[in-house]
Computed example of a mutant assay.
Amino acid sequence: MDGLAIREAVASDVAAMLKLYELGDRASDEAFTLDEGVAHLEMMQRNPALRVYVACDGDVVVGTYELLIMENMAKRGRRSGIVEDVMVLPEYRGRGVGKAMMQDAMDRCSAAGCYKLTLSSNRMREGAHRFYDALGFTRHGYSFRVELD
C-alpha cells in the first residue's frame, strides 16, 4: 500500500490503538481508558525488548502490532521474536497493511539476529491462518495457555 508508514507507537496513538482493539475480537469490558492506555504504553516502552508499532496511512493509524525480541539460553543464545496483538482497521484489511506490518516484524527480527519469529492465533480465525500461511509462516506444534488470576 503506497503511503503506508510503520513506526513505534507514541502516546498520541493510544486512542486509535484502543479503537482498533475495540473493533476486533479483543473487545472487552476490561479495556483501558485513554489515560490507562497511555500509562501502559509508557510502561511497555521501558522494556528494551518490547516495542509497539503502528501502521499509518498519512496521519491515520490503520494497524498495530507488538514485538518482543527475547534472549534465549538455548540455541547458543540466539534471539527469537514473538508478535502479539496484530490489528488492522476493517476498512483497510486486504490492502496490504497486515502484510507490511508482518514484513516489518520479520525485518526487525532479522536485524536483531533472531532465528525465528512466532505468533499464535485463535483456532477459529481461519482467515488469519490463511494470511499467515501466505506470508511464509508454518504451522508448528501447539500453542498452550492457562488462565491465571
Rank of each mutant, 00 (worst) to 15 (best):
G98N: 01
M101Q: 03
L20D: 04
D57G: 12
S80H: 13
K19Y: 01
A55M: 05
E91P: 02
Y65G: 05
K116F: 02
E71R: 11
V86F: 03
A111F: 06
Y142T: 01
L23S: 11
V61R: 00
H129E: 08
V38I: 09
K19F: 01
E22W: 08
E126S: 12
N72Q: 15
A49N: 09
L117C: 05
A5P: 05
L89C: 05
Y65E: 00
D104P: 03
E42A: 12
R7H: 09
A5D: 11
N47I: 04
A100N: 03
G141P: 01
D107C: 07
A55I: 04
F144P: 00
D25Y: 11
R145Y: 10
D13R: 04
D149N: 07
G127I: 07
F144R: 03
E22L: 14
S143A: 14
D35T: 14
D104C: 09
M73A: 07
R78K: 11
M17Q: 04
Q45N: 12
V62F: 01
M17N: 00
N72K: 09
M70S: 11
L68C: 14
V38M: 03
R79F: 13
D59V: 15
I6A: 04
A49C: 10
A55N: 10
C114W: 00
R93H: 02
F137C: 05
G63D: 01
S110N: 10
S121A: 12
P48W: 01
V60P: 02
M87Y: 07
L148G: 00
S80C: 11
G37C: 08
Y65K: 00
S12M: 07
V62C: 06
Y21C: 10
R145Q: 09
R26F: 11
H140P: 02
C56T: 12
A31M: 10
A15I: 09
Q45I: 00
D13A: 07
Q45T: 01
D13I: 06
G3E: 12
A128E: 06
D2H: 14
R125H: 07
S80F: 13
D104W: 06
D57T: 04
L20C: 10
E66P: 02
A27H: 14
L23M: 15
D29Q: 13
R108C: 08
S110Y: 15
C109T: 03
D133E: 08
G58N: 07
A16N: 10
L23T: 09
E36G: 08
R78H: 08
